[in-house]
Simulated scan of single mutants.
Amino acid sequence: MQASLDFDYILNLFPILFKYLGVTMEMALLGFFFALIISVVIAVIRVFQLPVLHQLAGLFISFFRGTPLLVQLFLFYYGLPQIFPILASFDAFTAAVCGLSLHFAAYMAESIRAAILGIDKSQMEACYSVGMTRLQAMYRIILPQASRVATPSLMNYFIDMIKSTSLAFTFGVAEIMAKAQMEAASTFKFFESFLAVAVIYWVVVIFFTRIQAILENRLNRAY
């Protein structure tokens, strides 16, 4: 006998999953905040080609872009505490935020670096002519201009980070994917449970895609 789709179950599941959406968004927002800070520092190091730091930044980018995010999350949660006992106090949520931050920082750093290099060199020369140092020119003149160029790709990474938070359920973070998995296991309605969580992710992504479009239009208004 062919089973039918249980729409009532899906509708009743939405309020349950929405209660855990805050955990997902908190994880994504914190991850993006720290990733942005790290990526700007790495991008500036790469642009200025600072000795030793430039090579370390390149190694960082190579590792976090060259290994799967799930492996990195497992390293943070299960692996590093064995080497550094002080990290044993990290809970699953903290480990997930650290893993997401470092993983996406590697990608965002290259986008920011490309945006910085895309600014005309005459801008930096003009800064030097009025007595600014390289760092002053970077954060006063270059980075504000580069932010407009980098915004579309950075917003794409943020949207990708929201979806990537679903991997955190593999080590027990109680976010919407974990709750959907628990509901599916208890009711055996796997299709309905995962369809419901897919719709929620879809709606969230549509919302932030719209925010991205508005932000891009506002930043490009002067151009």
Rank of each mutant, 00 (worst) to 15 (best):
A180C: 08
S147W: 01
G31A: 13
G99M: 07
V130F: 08
T165M: 06
F208E: 11
L102P: 03
F76Y: 01
M132C: 08
R46S: 07
Y157H: 15
Y107M: 04
A35K: 02
D6H: 00
N217T: 14
M161A: 15
L56N: 05
F169N: 04
G99H: 01
R134K: 13
I116V: 14
C127L: 08
E110H: 14
W202L: 04
F32R: 12
I162P: 03
W202E: 00
V47N: 13
L195G: 10
D91R: 09
E125G: 09
A109S: 15
T209S: 03
M1N: 06
A28E: 02
K179P: 12
H103C: 05
S186L: 07
D160T: 12
G31K: 03
L17S: 02
L53A: 10
I141E: 13
F84D: 12
R221M: 11
L13F: 00
A196L: 08
F194W: 13
L53C: 08
A180R: 11
L5R: 12
I159E: 06
L21H: 00
I159K: 13
L36N: 02
M132R: 11
P144E: 06
I159N: 15
R140T: 04
M177K: 13
A88L: 13
E175C: 03
M1R: 00
R221H: 07
Y139E: 09
P51V: 10
L117P: 09
Y128E: 07
A178P: 15
G118W: 11
C98T: 03
Y139S: 06
L69D: 11
E183N: 01
S89V: 14
Q82R: 15
A180M: 12
F104K: 02
F74A: 05
S111H: 06
Q181K: 13
V204Y: 02
R221K: 07
V173R: 11
E26R: 08
A96D: 08
Q212P: 02
M108D: 12
K163T: 02
I162R: 05
T151F: 10
I38V: 01
F7P: 09
L69V: 07
R148K: 15
E183S: 07
F7R: 08
F104D: 09
P68W: 00
L219E: 03
F93G: 11
I162V: 13
D8T: 06
S122T: 06
Q212S: 06
T209D: 04
L167H: 09
L5W: 10
I211C: 13
D160F: 08
R210P: 12
A196R: 08
L29H: 10
V149H: 10
L5I: 11
A35P: 11
F171Y: 14
D160H: 00
S166R: 13
T151V: 10
S164L: 02
S101P: 07
F90E: 14
G66K: 04
A198G: 05
Y20D: 10
A109E: 11
F48A: 02
F34K: 14
